[in-house]
Amino acid sequence: MSANPLVPEVATIIDIVEETPDVRTFVLEPDAGPVFAYRPGQCAMVSVFGVGEAMISITSTWSPERPLELSVKRVGRVTAALHEAEPGHKVGVRGPYGNSFPVEEWEGKNLLFVGGGIGLAPLRALINYCLERRQSYSRVDIVYGARSPRDLCFKREIFERWPKVPGVAVHLTVDAADAQWQGAVALVPHFLERLAPSPSGTVAVTCGPPIMIRYTLATLEKLGFADEQIVTTLELKMQCGVGKCGRCNIGPRYVCLDGPVFTRAQLKELPQEY
């Protein structure tokens, strides 16, 4: 590995999973040596050489022999170039960056995950981490929504794997149904309000588009969740990922170093500039 933190390792795309029409999961293996160790909530800077770099949350759960998985929505220049890539292509990867979910602090508690769209990517790393240590946590509720049924990510997990784990309930919703959809049709915050999970002994973790997070935070507050019980992740433009390029600050904090995971209590201390 380079002494320069801005120089990525070269990695090979060993598999590409089509999650939705605009989300693909890239399975990567570094060419020289094992994947760096990482915790749920941390991110990696992925690069398409000649196009650029983008900070992407890691969606896999670390173990020494497991490849790195990044679920990427096609939004901008770099992500569009990634979507053009095929298995066998080389990309750059560096990391891990950012803090992580304080999973040790949550032991013994109920976990409520609230995700929207591609926001399930960082939550998937966290959910699988917690389910691999199922006995450490109490009840687990996964609330997840997307624009339409075909926009739901990680279909094998949300429909098959997770609901089978004892004490885990998966609650799915879509903004707009198609002909086959039998489930709920509601925006995530409204759906959550109807489910009315109890705040007692519970940590709520929410990731999704900014507008969804905003209304989800309001719903959680209405349900009686205190600011310290609500955890979310932030996303800001980044160029370096290592606290040097001067870009992703919110007041005195840098999302790449001090985030992306913040409690609502921590966010209330910062300027509303994200």
Binding site: L6, S47, F49, G50, V51, G52, E53, Q239, C240, K244, C245, G246, R247
Partner: peptide, 20 residues
Amino acid sequence: CFAVFDSLRVTRGRRQRGWD
């Protein structure tokens, strides 16, 4: 503050950073 940018010419290129 700096920005990071790539340039590419057929099969070779470089990544640079520059003032922003």
